[in-house]
């Protein structure tokens, strides 16, 4: 496992050296592929596959932060994302509901702020519980939100929700164009990924993982474990809210169905499918999920998606509790072991 010191650059090094040190050749290949991809693929692949992967991956990343580092499995991360999406619609002037018609520069940050505040509240409510009880509380929050938006016409426009939601033109750019939307989603996803990666080795991230491993000892060391857990919920809520805003622009609509039980569970499946112990896992899980979502229909028939994803989920957790990342790690260790010279002469 990487440690603080391994990843901490020497003070005497230049800024460039400190930035470049952790970069490997395959990072450059991935970066190149990501940069070139929208120019060599169709609009469908750029938006429906790639951008959707980034967005779902970002929302699942927020769950990875909570569950992987904090040991808190929250089922309300999509609810937080959905709230941000709803708030963009409500404040940004979608027809129906409250319809505030505020400028995007106010509406979008306010939407993210409200969703983050809500996540903090959910965190404050759930951090006193452990394990299955955290799952149940966050599921209850998710379901309460679903039924609230389903029945509330004044703010959330009830079962109709909001439609025709598009990213506002900024700097004269139409962000709905596939390439632009792709890079917008990629930027947000990369921001979330590197933020989580950085924090994982910062005192906050280390403390969060230590709270996961042994809360009693952390308390005895002088740490306020509830404060760390609530802060993790706030941070994860912020990341989920960023994904939620993009999600509403991707789908151009949001309705109670977007925040129902199915999508809530999907985020959990994505995170576990990819691997919940490293920030790249949710993006791998999201890619598998999106590919299956789009192509399972062509392979085995229209209504078999849930069967396929369920089987895939079962197979992966059966062989690797840490998802695809765990499989990759196992394969690498076997390869290493097979390359080692035998001790027997």
């Amino acid at each position: 496992m990487a440690s603080v010191i391994e990843e901490t650059p020497r003070e005497s090094d230049g800024v460039l050296a400190r930035l470049v040190r952790p970069v490997r050749w395959y990072h450059l290949v991935i970066a190149l592929v990501l940069l070139v991809f929208p120019f060599v693929s169709t609009g469908f692949w750029t938006v429906q596959i790639a951008a959707q992967t980034f967005i779902l991956g970002t929302i699942a990343l927020s769950l990875m932060l909570l569950a992987g580092y904090g040991g808190m499995v929250s089922l309300s991360q999509l609810t937080i994302a959905g709230l941000a999406g709803y708030m963009v619609a409500v404040f940004g002037g979608a027809s129906g509901g409250l319809g505030m018609f505020w400028p995007p520069i106010v509406a979008i940050p306010l939407a993210i702020l409200i969703a983050t505040a809500f996540a903090t509240l959910v965190g404050a409510l759930s951090v006193r519980t452990e394990g299955i009880y955290t799952i149940m509380i966050t599921l209850a929050v998710g379901m309460a939100f679903y039924f609230f938006v389903l029945q509330n016409r004044e703010i959330f426009n009830a079962f109709n929700g909001f439609a025709g939601l598009r990213p506002p033109p900024v700097l004269g750019i139409n962000w709905r164009q596939p390439e632009y939307f792709y890079f917008l989603s990629l930027t947000v996803a990369a921001f979330g990924y590197f933020l989580v990666l950085y924090l994982s080795r910062a005192p906050f991230g280390l403390a969060l993982q230590a709270v996961r491993d042994n809360p009693r000892r952390m308390r005895a060391l002088g740490f306020n474990i509830q404060a760390h857990r609530i802060a993790a919920h706030a941070l994860a809520g912020f990341i989920a809210a960023l994904g939620g805003v993009l999600m509403v622009w991707l789908n151009t609509q949001i309705s109670p169905g977007s925040v129902g039980l199915g999508p809530l569970i999907s985020i959990l499946i994505i995170a576990i499918l990819g691997g919940i112990l490293h920030p790249i896992g949710p993006f791998i899980g999201a890619l598998i999920f999106v590919l299956l979502d789009n192509f399972a229909m062509q392979l085995i028939g229209g209504d078999r998606f849930n069967t396929v994803i369920g089987l895939m989920f079962l197979l992966i957790v059966l062989f690797s509790p840490d998802g695809v990342l765990g499989l990759w790690k196992m394969a690498r260790e076997r390869l290493k072991a097979s390359k080692k010279p035998s001790a027997d002469w």
Binding site: V4, I5, T8, E11, Y198, A202, P203, L221, N224, A227
Partner: peptide
Amino acid sequence: FLAVRGVSRARFSFRRPGR
């Protein structure tokens, strides 16, 4: 590091420690 940090004033920090 956490054992030392726990009894310091800077227990809660988002900034990675330098050398």
